Computed example of a mutant assay.
Amino acid sequence: MSLLKWGGLAAIVEACTYIFGFILFFGILNTTGLETPKQYLSFVIEHRDSYFLGYLISGILFSLALIILVHATYQTFKQVSPEFINITTIIGYLWAGLVLASSLIFLSSLGPIAKYHAIDPDAALVINRSITIVVDALGGGIELVGALWVLAISYVGLKGKIFSQWLHYWGVLVGLAGVLTIFAGFSFLADNGFFSTTTAIFGLGQIVWFLGLGFAMLNAGAKQA
């Protein structure tokens, strides 16, 4: 099977991991009724295996599939803008590395936190909140790195007229929404609902973008065969 087809399958896997994550974390493991950090931590420990499975798929599988997709897009887009796509590829690999690192940190923390919680719940809470900050910083609290990769790939696609234009315009929209999430770090913007919207656009919009990119790469690979 050609690299283009592998890339297409990887993109579809990316979309599926997002869908799985939304269903698991916002549906099955819904924590909206929990009022305190202690209640949330107890809930996580109680559903430890579900969280472990969730991060295996939405974190580990996502990042490994992303590595394949980044390499496939490099091979597909490099003729259009060789120097720019080299930088874009580095950003893509960096995104995969950040997601992988954050997922491994979270997965490796579940066991120790459960043990600490049985001995000293307050200490376990402090450790968990510290780990949460690190995981969020690396894995998507700010969507800048992933957004830049989506934006750059979409720009090259538009420039070289690779695949359909609607796909790349959608990628530009999704990428810009992700870039805007960085501004939520300003204290006077922290509670602005606009940034919750941009985060949602980036997350949900990527599902459509990954699916569109995946099927486009599969179709192109089939034509080359």
Rank of each mutant, 00 (worst) to 15 (best):
G111M: 14
H71A: 15
T132M: 13
F188D: 15
Y155E: 14
F22A: 14
A123E: 15
L100S: 00
I119G: 12
I127Q: 08
K161P: 10
T17M: 09
M217E: 14
S58Y: 08
D49E: 15
I67W: 03
T88H: 04
Q75P: 09
S164L: 09
I182P: 00
G212P: 00
L64G: 10
E143Y: 11
G97H: 00
G175T: 00
S102I: 01
G7V: 04
G33T: 09
G92D: 02
G21T: 05
G205H: 02
V208H: 09
K223S: 15
T198W: 03
I19V: 14
L100C: 00
G59A: 12
H117W: 06
Q165C: 09
G139K: 00
G175Q: 00
T89D: 04
A96E: 11
L213V: 09
F163N: 07
V70R: 00
G175D: 01
G214P: 01
I201L: 02
G157N: 09
Y93H: 05
G212F: 01
M1A: 11
G139N: 02
G205R: 02
E143S: 12
T76N: 11
I182N: 02
A101T: 11
N30A: 07
L64K: 03
T73R: 10
F26H: 13
G178S: 10
L64Q: 11
A96N: 08
L176T: 09
K5G: 07
L189K: 01
L189S: 02
A65H: 00
A152T: 11
G59L: 10
L151Y: 00
Y93F: 11
W170R: 05
G214C: 01
L29E: 04
F43V: 00
Q224W: 12
F25Q: 08
